[in-house]
Design a protein around this nucleic acid. Structure first.
Length: 823
RNA sequence: GCCCGGGUGGCGGAGUUGGUAGACGCGGCCGACUUAAAAUCGGCUUCUCCGAUACGGAGAGCGUGAGUUCGAGUCUCACCCCGGGCACCA
């Protein structure tokens, strides 16, 4: 018998699949049945290098689902593309010294070869790359539709700036005050930038999380990121000039009577103005300057809160009391109104500040029964707390008080109920070269002018020097920048910033459905047929960024009538990372496992098997060098068994076999394995245990020497059929050797329910909960018969001897527990 | 600080509605085949103890401590450790 030679088999079958075009899934034609369409999608890779093991795990998972669903009668779209614009690709290009367009294309070519070698069932006719003009033309088109709708706009704002990558960043790309990509400490800058008005969608982004089947932790992370708070906006006015309004947002309107001072952020536009003319003017100016130079991390890291008095007071609208206005950097300009009423008795931060500057503390909420101490803020506010020192509101429970105060403020025109979100608008412009050009022309006369649709795409110009300099490298391409204003024909200048890469990836899943459309990004009827994506699979690192942006785009496109659904991804599976030598694989740590080396050594099938055998797919897993050999041994054993079976007993695909004679147990095991694997792949996404089940079946085939040829051929066919989604090459080969053809078209095997149980079942017998023996009983035996058999087990008899059995528990098919009391 | 995951043999892990903890794989030990090695095949492999005749039996054991239950890895409470998210968000 020839040895298992994965390379020969894999190359041959990949050629067959390509020739038969079995991965190509065309869109249904009018009138065709669309009830069994399914869209399986994995997050597309950045072509900043070759694929790593994380990709292999991700795409193999998607492939298992795809192959499994296809054999269950679904028409599955399984596309692939490249998130080719952006910092990763550009930085890789800078490192290699090649132009990003060149290095990106080279990387894509290399990745495509790797993907084909893995045998993933990707429909290559739908392949796309976000850096190609026929794709980004439509990214620009969508940008313009959002611009028309007022959802893309320019504003001058304090923005996050990465001093290393020399570009602005979105809030979502700042982790702990550091750049998400390079780790540099992020600075704050005042710049005019482009934003998407994602905040308009905050409530819907929150509400619609209820309708998706996503991992709970991802939903929670998005909820936290959106950060909805209910409260009130309350208008305070300057005591020296009631025309100056200073609104605050508070979640605790019930504590308004406890406000003993007022704080505004150093960046607040009124900070300097308020202090003007007071003896504190110079001090305030100095403080604003000093804190402005600090990063958010430095501010938050300060041991003690700092601030200065402005010399001014504001009037508390509930009691007309004047309270001092301070400037302090513990108040953030970006949230709420940039100003707060300080209630030290009931807010930890205000309390700390009041202690530092010796400001008064006035308690207005007390526990209904019991005392609140004086050495900390008392922050509870439920039905168990009551208001005091609060005028007409005294005696109300805190939660009622909140409503009552809001109602009073509203009726007096001094405030109103308000909801605040943590979510900020998405800053989309970048001062980098390798990105999608923003299709806008600036004209002295007309202002910001969109490039007309018929002039798209605005092609990214070739420039020699694309290194980041803090302003877009595109600005240097004078010929490109200087252009006639599309509106008035006068001199105009193109927008030179490019788009954040996340814009490109916020709609790619739509383009796959209609990838060659030259007249529109996609046809609505076609995307509505395929989407939302039935199963999306990708890394947890995109829990907020990509997944939030894609949801926003989908909702905006829905509102504009371009798609008929509001959520892009119905089901999401987030995979864990693969670690190696105790750390996540990274080039800098030098603990990379290159997939190519494994394919070279063991073949694609073994590599596919092992990445899914590591552990539960949603959890991080440790790569073990030796583990791969086990999967290879398994395939070699399967190979040998099938070939031996055919040699000894002849070929022929058996779709059933009698569960009697010497091989009866084997046949039953095959049915149980179908049941187990089907549930594990189809329902549980438990890819590791599905494999274990096939291992067990193969071991039993190996041991079932006395089984009939039909029984052996049946068991082999089931093993081969079940392992096909994991190891399609060897499975197709062995299926053919067994006498079949086109395993990929073979319906998924069905377990015969009557064969899932054996004639007898082994009961565990416990005495007082301790295992004392086992006994085989006929399936379906009466409770009394089971008990009698259990009592007859010698070791059990010894343990109940001389004691009174006070309780008998029989769990059908599982165990007996005899409860005895010592006699 | 708040919110999620997770903690089970030497290792990765299984244990799906509370019902025989350790499936499957790695590693290790012993044996077969071989001049030898590799490959392959067979056996053993949670710990401690007892008795060793097939191998049997006793006790302990799933981060710690309580609890509910005939019975807890699984449920409840309190706590410890690891990983992740959010965090001066008013």
């Amino acid at each position: 018998m020839e040895r298992y030679d994965p390379h020969e088999i894999e190359a041959r079958w990949q050629a067959v699949w390509a020739a038969e075009r079995i991965f190509e899934v065309p869109n249904p034609r009018p009138g065709e049945d669309t009830s069994r369409l399914m869209y399986v999608l994995e997050m597309l890779p950045y072509p900043s290098g070759e694929l790593h093991m994380g990709h292999v795990k991700n795409y193999t998972m998607g492939d298992v689902v795809t192959l499994y669903r296809r054999r269950n009668g679904y028409r599955v779209m399984h596309p692939m593309g490249y998130d080719a614009f952006g910092l990763p690709a550009e930085n890789a290009a800078i490192r290699s010294g090649k132009h990003p367009a060149v290095s990106t294309r080279e990387n894509i070519d290399a990745i495509r070869v790797q993907m084909k070698r893995m045998g993933w069932s990707i429909d290559w006719t739908r392949e796309l790359s976000t850096s190609e003009p026929d794709y980004y033309r439509w990214t620009q088109w969508i940008f313009l539709r959002l611009f028309d709708a007022g959802l893309a706009y320019r504003k001058n704002a304090a923005v996050k700036w990465c001093p290393n990558d020399l570009t602005v960043l979105a809030n979502e790309q700042v982790i702990d005050g550091h750049c998400e990509r390079c780790g540099a400490l992020v600075e704050s800058k005042n710049l005019e930038q482009w934003f998407f008005k994602i905040t308009d969608y905050a409530q819907r982004l929150l509400d619609d999380l209820a309708g998706v089947r996503w991992p709970e932790r991802v939903v929670t992370m998005q909820r936290n990121w959106i950060g909805r708070s209910e409260g009130a906006q309350v208008v305070f006015r300057a005591q020296h000039d009631p025309a100056i309004e200073l609104p605050v947002f508070t979640t605790r309107p019930d504590t308004l009577f406890g406000a003993t001072f007022f704080v505004i952020a150093p960046e607040h536009p009124l900070a300097l103005e308020l202090a003007r003319g007071t003896e504190h003017e110079a001090e305030v100016a100095d403080y604003v300057r000093r804190t402005g130079a600090l990063s958010a991390v430095e501010r938050a890291g300060e041991k003690q809160k700092t601030g200065v008095f402005t010399g001014r007071h504001v009037v508390n609208p509930v009691n007309d009391e004047g309270i001092p206005v301070w400037v302090a950097d513990y108040v953030l300009m970006e949230y709420g109104t940039g100003a707060i009423m300080a209630v030290p008795a009931h807010d930890e931060r205000d309390f700390e500040f009041a202690r530092t500057y010796d400001l008064p503390v006035r308690r207005v909420v007390v526990p209904r029964d019991g005392e609140a101490g004086d050495d900390a803020a008392y922050t509870a506010h439920s039905e168990h707390e009551v208001l005091v020192n609060s005028g007409a509101f005294d005696g109300l429970a805190a939660d009622e008080g909140k409503r009552a105060v809001i109602e009073w403020l509203r009726s007096e025109g001094r405030g109103e109920g308000r909801v605040a979100f943590r979510l900020r608008d998405w800053l989309l412009s970048r001062q980098r070269y390798w990105g999608c050009p923003i299709p806008i022309v600036h004209c002295d006369g007309c202002g910001v002018v969109p490039v007309p649709d018929d002039q798209l795409p605005v092609v990214l110009p070739e420039v020699e020097d694309y290194a980041p300099r803090g302003r877009s490298p595109l600005a240097a391409a004078e010929d490109w920048v200087n252009v006639a204003c599309p509106r008035c024909g006068g001199p105009g200048r193109r927008e030179t910033d490019t788009m954040d890469t996340f814009v490109d990836s916020s709609w790619y899943f739509l383009r796959y459905a209609d990838p060659h459309n030259a007249n529109a990004p996609f046809d609505r009827a076609i995307v509505d047929m395929w989407l939302p994506v039935d199963q999306y699979i990708g890394g947890i690192e995109h829990a907020i960024l990509h997944l939030m942006y894609a949801r926003f785009f989908t909702k905006a496109l829905y509102d504009l009538g371009y798609v008929g659904f509001t959520e892009p991804f119905a089901d999401l599976f987030t995979q864990g990372m693969i670690h190696y030598k105790g750390a996540k694989m990274s080039k800098s740590k030098g603990n990379i496992i290159r997939p190519d080396e494994f394919i070279e050594r063991y073949g694609a099938d073994t590599t596919r098997l092992y990445t899914l055998f590591l552990g539960p797919p949603d959890q991080d897993a440790e790569w073990q060098d030796g583990g791969v050999a086990g999967q290879h041994r398994f395939l070699a054993r399967l190979w040998r068994l099938v070939n031996e079976t055919v040699d000894r007993h002849g070929s022929g695909i058996e779709r059933s076999a009698p569960a009697d004679g010497a091989g009866g147990d084997l046949v039953r095991k095959a049915h149980r394995t179908i049941e187990k694997v089907t549930g594990d792949i189809g329902q549980r996404f438990s890819f590791n245990t599905a494999q274990s089940a096939v291992h067990e079946l193969v071991s039993e085939i190996h041991e079932a020497e006395a089984a009939s040829g039909q029984q052996l051929r049946f068991a082999c066919a089931i093993a081969v059929s079940l392992i096909h989604p994991y190891a399609p090459h060897i499975a197709c080969e062995l299926w053919q050797r067994l006498g079949g053809e086109r395993l990929w078209d073979e319906p998924w095997p069905q377990a015969d329910a009557s064969l899932l149980v054996a004639d007898t079942v082994t009961y565990a017998v416990q005495v007082n909960g301790k295992l004392r023996g086992q006994v085989d009983v006929a399936v379906g035996a009466e409770k009394e018969a089971v008990l009698a058999a259990a009592r007859a087990v010698p070791n059990v008899a010894a343990h109940i001897d001389g004691a009174a059995v006070v309780k008998e528990i029989v769990v059908p098919g599982r165990l007996v527990n005899l409860v005895v009391r010592e006699g």
